[in-house]
Amino acid sequence: MPAFRDFNFKLLVIEKLMYEDRTLTPAFSINELLRARGIGDAQTYAFENDLAYTVLDESRAYFEALEISEELLATVDTLLVDGGHQVYYECSPVWDGEDELFDVSSLDDLDLLPNLRRISGAQDCGMGVPFTEEVLAARGIASD
């Protein structure tokens, strides 16, 4: 299975496949996982344990271990960079988008997406530091 180098880039891909396309299943739910452990809802858990603006260990472990086949990665032709992604809620249920918690720091993982043709939103959301138009254009990827 392909290995991602940038956790936050992997989250963008997971958002596309798991929560948008629904081809990467089952969809992870931090609320379901915590309820199964008798903990309650994720937002309360995060606040009560001073974890409000961090990635919960349970979520990080799940998403880091999640394997995505080359066949499924080949279906990714677009990515959306947006602070309101479901995957971000599943990682940090009370994150407000006002910090760099989910900023992508490297585009090395673009090699894992052979059919990626467009990345939307990178310039608008403040998370697009590495998403320069020149770098993407050199790979045949449009950005808006």
Results as ranks from 00 to 15, higher is better:
residue 1 M to T: 07
residue 2 P to C: 02
residue 2 P to K: 01
residue 3 A to R: 15
residue 8 N to H: 02
residue 14 I to R: 13
residue 14 I to C: 12
residue 15 E to F: 00
residue 15 E to Y: 00
residue 16 K to V: 01
residue 19 Y to K: 06
residue 21 D to N: 15
residue 21 D to V: 04
residue 24 L to A: 09
residue 25 T to V: 15
residue 27 A to C: 14
residue 31 N to Q: 08
residue 35 R to M: 12
residue 39 I to E: 07
residue 42 A to N: 00
residue 46 A to K: 13
residue 50 D to E: 14
residue 51 L to D: 04
residue 51 L to W: 08
residue 53 Y to F: 06
residue 54 T to E: 15
residue 57 D to E: 01
residue 59 S to G: 05
residue 60 R to V: 01
residue 61 A to D: 15
residue 66 L to E: 08
residue 66 L to Q: 13
residue 70 E to T: 09
residue 73 L to A: 03
residue 76 V to I: 00
residue 77 D to L: 03
residue 77 D to R: 13
residue 79 L to S: 07
residue 79 L to Y: 03
residue 82 D to L: 05
residue 83 G to R: 15
residue 84 G to Y: 01
residue 85 H to C: 09
residue 86 Q to T: 14
residue 89 Y to G: 04
residue 91 C to Q: 10
residue 92 S to H: 10
residue 95 W to D: 13
residue 100 E to T: 15
residue 100 E to L: 15
residue 101 L to C: 01
residue 101 L to P: 01
residue 101 L to H: 03
residue 102 F to G: 01
residue 104 V to K: 09
residue 104 V to T: 09
residue 105 S to G: 11
residue 107 L to M: 06
residue 109 D to T: 04
residue 109 D to A: 08
residue 110 L to V: 00
residue 111 D to S: 13
residue 113 L to W: 04
residue 114 P to H: 10
residue 116 L to A: 02
residue 117 R to W: 07
residue 117 R to P: 02
residue 118 R to T: 14
residue 120 S to I: 08
residue 123 Q to L: 07
residue 123 Q to V: 06
residue 124 D to N: 12
residue 125 C to V: 08
residue 125 C to R: 09
residue 130 P to K: 05
residue 132 T to I: 05
residue 133 E to H: 11
residue 135 V to G: 00
residue 135 V to I: 03
residue 135 V to F: 03
residue 137 A to R: 12
residue 139 R to V: 03
residue 140 G to F: 10
residue 140 G to R: 11
residue 142 A to M: 13
residue 143 S to R: 15
